[in-house]
Design a protein around this nucleic acid. Structure first.
Lengths: 243, 243
DNA sequence: CGTCAACAGATTTTCGATAATTTATTTGAT
DNA sequence: ATCAAATAAATTATCGAAAATCTGTTGACG
């Protein structure tokens, strides 16, 4: 499959394109967890040489989306219940700090951008008519944007970059779970409550709502992950017992 | 200057060597903040081709030690008072969480490793007779090891990796400040108190001691940074006024 | 005198080929 | 048949040259 480069990639170096394409393919699970990333395959897929690809993969390794084993090449990072739990717990703690600082320092600009982000999110459909099995790219982007807006006034670039990295990782699990998930959840209400509490500077309530919000995602994704893993394990056991 | 590869680099890919060498050169400020990193120069310095170097630089960009500007190449990340403050504040928050979890979960293994790390640190001289202007590599390693041991039982790989990245960044500022610093501080007592409080599971005291410890470093480094920046600014102003 | 275009040099980015390493397959001895 | 060494195939890691881009300079023109 040869993918065309998005409009935004014009004027970028191939390196930057490779990075953006790979990251988005991994987060959306078009490249599945634990899948081997052969350089030759990726060269065909993205239509470029080895250098930009390997450089992008190196960068993604630092971000935790890719793993490199010496002389054995790259793989998409594996997923697991342990990692998911660790990720979400850590994310809650990081966002707790960021929210504290953001509610403390946020001014009218922050309030306005938060309202704006919520509005855009609330008007964006979660599923895409073209591709009903996956979450719409557009919704995913607005959703990320909303959560980013909540903490954007925290005043710490370092903390914000940590947070967005964790959010990305979590997003990959969400993408994975959507593939086999039941009814869509009503996030609009949840997000609205979160925004209201933040705007009213009700710190404890905001933190609690955020905790619940993240934990709800965790539960859903975790269940879905368990369901998709169990059959694989059974298959493994059958194979073994047949031998 | 052509540096020989350390013993540990045998059997590694050049890529991994480049990464380790570059990271350590940057943290020790042998490559100074904001210094341009020309590929050709680095090729000579480390005796390898472009690929492993660029791949390592890409990785370090994700770690925040290096910055890349499209088509203009790499630089060592700039330092600033704002970044230093942000870094240290964030580090305190992260370590606070990690310490909470570590004191909660740490068992006898953790206690033993902490005692061991403290002992090694306390027996290691801070200055190296061969190079009296810089902090000894060995001390720096034991120091990092001690702080790592404090939080090692926290049970969250994600949090630990975030913490060690922040610690590394802070270490670069410390290396920078040492070059122009006054009397060495007595860290042994500070570290001993920290360890004692942790081993006794006195959570609040541990957190407070850690906060103070980090803030003391911050103050010292910040003062040193201000002192070294001011003359540079004056020089700049002179240059401009001469034109 | 200043502005802009065209050129030249330096530097970054990218490519495809080669070297090194791992993985799979075959062969031969016990 | 079993195991191990030897060979072949596949893949990764690395290199150095070529292409693309940026930076600084020169000179023409308003």
């Amino acid at each position: 499959m040869r993918l065309s480069l998005a409009k935004s990639d014009i004027n970028q170096t191939l390196n930057a394109s490779a990075l953006a394409l790979l990251r988005s393919d991994i987060i959306a699970c078009r490249l599945m967890p634990n899948e081997r990333l052969r350089v030759e395959t990726l060269r065909e897929r993205y239509g470029m040489g080895t250098s930009p690809i390997r450089e992008a993969l190196m960068r993604l390794e630092a971000e935790g989306l890719v793993e490199l084993e010496q002389n054995k090449g790259f793989r998409v990072s594996e997923v697991s219940q342990e990692n998911l739990l660790d990720l979400m717990r850590t994310r809650i703690e990081i966002e707790t700090i960021a929210l504290c600082w953001s509610l403390e320092k946020g001014g009218v600009d922050w309030e306005a951008s938060l309202l704006s982000a919520f509005h855009r999110l609330s008007r964006q459909s979660k599923i895409d008519s073209a591709n009903p099995d996956a979450i719409s790219e557009a919704w995913s982007k607005e959703h990320a944007n909303f959560h980013s807006a909540l903490v954007s006034a925290c005043g710490s670039p370092t903390l914000l970059s940590i947070r967005s990295r964790l959010f990305e990782q979590a997003d990959r699990y969400v993408a994975l779970s959507i593939m086999s998930s039941g009814p869509l959840r009503d996030d609009v209400t949840e997000h609205k409550q979160l925004m209201r509490a933040a705007l009213n500077r009700e710190l404890d309530k905001t933190l609690e709502l955020n905790r619940v919000h993240v934990n709800r995602t965790l539960d859903k994704v975790s269940a879905s992950l368990a369901a998709s893993k169990a059959p694989a394990d059974l298959r493994m056991m059958n194979k073994k017992s047949l031998k």
